[in-house]
Write a protein that binds this DNA or RNA. Structure first.
Lengths: 117, 117
DNA sequence: TTGACATATTCCTATATGGGTATATGATGT
DNA sequence: ACATCATATACCCATATAGGAATATGTCAA
């Protein structure tokens, strides 16, 4: 089997740097395709193709406005990524390390006295 | 050009569900390969291959212990993902939406009086 | 209608993939 | 030395890709 499709889920969709870049631009508000083309400095067909992928995973939505299509962010689609990576935060967060120290201390104290409950 | 290598960065590495699963197991503490094989219910060669990818992006580290290799998590490698996705949190967070309401209110108040500075 | 503009789609190609299966490497105990 | 356990690697294959280039689709303005 090959790799999962880029459109399989948000994880696969945002694995591509250009697509993250597009989303980063759209955080600043909705934009027509041409704005994105200029912002990324990438040929228009590629931008359209990336937008298709983002659309398919629900990360962006389109609105037709005359001859242009205005894309807007739909951050909800990224929630699974956030939720998944969140627990790993403790690995690099000072605050969590300090919390770990406190918990360690409590545990030692508990181990000290045999009284239970 | 083809898709970026799975070993290109953490984003590409964790796009594969099995690899996220492996990391999720390792959050609970270091484990030899065989434990992972049983935990995932996947043939051993596949687990070893996924571990290779995770090693190459720095998401796990190995320790040799007799004839087994004990893998442990290195959450730091996932920080870029967390950092990237964090700003999108406001899209689904109630708390941020409420903050947005407050800011909106402040903005309207400011628009009301023409006094500047 | 015609031409310019905005966007999407199609066709091409090299490439890396994940799964399956078999085998290599290396350590352990007897 | 040997069989066994633990892990990694090699090989094969179908598949989806990202980029490039060309073109289709659709809208506006004169």
């Amino acid at each position: 089997m090959a790799r999962a499709a880029t459109t399989a889920d948000a994880f696969n969709a945002v694995a591509e740097p250009r697509r993250r870049q597009i989303l980063d631009v759209l955080v600043g508000g909705e934009r027509p395709v041409n704005d994105l083309v200029r912002a990324l400095g990438v040929p228009q067909p590629q931008v359209s193709k990336h937008l298709r992928v983002l659309r398919e995973v629900g990360a962006v939505e389109v609105r037709e406005e005359g001859r242009r299509r205005v894309y807007r962010l739909n951050g909800d689609a990224l929630k699974p990524i956030h939720d998944w990576v969140k627990p790993y935060e403790r690995a690099w967060s000072e605050r969590f390390e300090q919390l770990d120290d406190v918990l360690e201390e409590l545990k030692e104290k508990e181990d000290g006295n045999g009284s239970d409950e």
